[in-house]
């Protein structure tokens, strides 16, 4: 395998892992922040009056449960980055494509009342992650 291809594969693998591993914590973070911003603040207060360990269990349980879905989303995001990251403009377009992809997935799997709020969160998460990895990806592998 050519060194350039090997470099790209390693880079893609790393980004895939990063996406998969940080998707859930980012989701919780963004959801909590948006909940607060939208006046809800309900995300954490749902656990009011319950032992802190239940909230932690829901957090870690959510992490484990989200991994298969996170892997799917990470795969699509990595593929899009691979295909469209030659220029900054196409990178941004790939972000848009990923958002549309998520929109379709969640509209088909969630009731509208929930997708309505979830999509906002997911697009925000996605944007955050793209910002994090986009810069790294733009640096070319040297063959």
């Amino acid at each position: 395998m050519k060194p350039l291809m090997r470099c790209r594969l390693i880079r893609a693998g790393l980004i895939f892992l990063l996406f998969m591993l940080v998707l859930w914590p980012s989701f919780v973070l963004v959801s909590t922040a948006m909940g607060y911003w939208l006046g809800d603040g309900i995300v954490v207060s749902r656990y009011t009056g319950e032992p802190r360990r239940l909230m932690l269990a829901a957090l870690t349980g959510g992490y484990a449960a989200s991994l298969p879905q996170a892997a799917g989303i990470a795969l699509v995001a990595t593929g899009l980055l691979w295909l469209f990251s030659h220029r900054f403009v196409t990178l941004m377009l790939s972000g848009l494509a990923a958002a549309v992809f998520l929109l379709l997935v969640y509209l088909f799997t969630l009731p509208f009342s929930l997708a309505n709020s979830l999509i906002l969160i997911l697009v925000a998460v996605e944007f955050l992650l793209l910002l994090m990895v986009g810069g790294y990806w733009m640096r070319r592998c040297r063959g």
Binding site: S31, T32, L38, V43, G62, F112, S113, L114
Partner: peptide
């Protein structure tokens, strides 16, 4: 679903 505990619901009341 696991993620619903972490979502706020700004939408219209069902």
């Amino acid at each position: 679903p696991y993620y619903m505990s972490w979502v706020s619901f700004p939408g219209h009341l069902p």
